Computed example of a mutant assay.
Amino acid sequence: MSRRFAQLAFSPAVRRHQHEHGSDRAYGRMLEGPAAADPIGPAEAEFIAERDSFYLATVGENGWPYIQHRGGPAGFLKVLGEHTLGFADLRGNRQYITRGNLDHDDRVSLFLMDYAHRTRLKILGRARAVEDDPGLLAALTAEGSPGRPERALIVDVEGFDWNCPQHIPQLFPRDAVEQALGTLRTRVEELERENARLRAAG
């Protein structure tokens, strides 16, 4: 866990529970040091570029959290700098809950999953919608995006945390499974032909 992520996530109430359950010593040192935003490193950039979906959490004016799924071609969430992410926000059901929440509170949490490798990356940041920049929107729109881009969303990353694989189920994308099954079918057919040839020759 990064120092900045801990500074943002470990509120006094969280620290109280850590103390009660004996984990405060392990995490306490992470609160030390300057409150500087975490830079996105090569490992984070590579992981982000491979994702074809993530979850985005915001908070509404009424205090209720809201989580929305975002999906697209792998790499549609783009690293724009060592502290900046961006993506083209596609038109959906036109409820605009996330968009409205950002007018109230720009704090967001992104949750990126890789079920095949049982890996997850959590990101805390501040997001802003850019409504009137066609050039930026075009640059962020990934080829093969499944919808109409309405605006650009830019996330200024504050902190991130890599989680351990405990309790993450190992799941595989359908296309990867189909590819593996296709390879197996081809091999089975080759073995069946070879078996038939050997029987005929015997």
Results as ranks from 00 to 15, higher is better:
I97S: 07
R94Q: 13
K78D: 00
P65M: 05
E50R: 15
Q68F: 03
D52Y: 14
G71P: 00
N93A: 14
D52N: 15
A88K: 00
Y27N: 14
D103Q: 06
D105Q: 06
Y55L: 15
L80W: 02
A49H: 02
L56V: 03
G100P: 03
A36P: 01
W64C: 10
A88Y: 02
A45N: 06
R94H: 14
W64V: 13
L85K: 04
N93M: 07
D38T: 03
G41K: 09
F87R: 00
T58A: 12
M30N: 08
R70M: 03
A74G: 11
A43Q: 15
G81V: 11
H104T: 14
R25F: 09
R51M: 08
D106A: 03
P42N: 09
G86Q: 04
G63P: 08
G86I: 03
I48K: 03
R29K: 15
I67L: 09
F87E: 08
A35K: 13
R70C: 00
G28L: 04
Y66W: 13
T98D: 05
E32K: 11
G81F: 11
R91G: 13
N101P: 02
A35L: 12
A37P: 06
Y27S: 12
G72W: 00
G33K: 09
G71L: 07
L56F: 14
K78E: 01
F76L: 01
L80Q: 06
P39G: 11
M30P: 00
E46P: 12
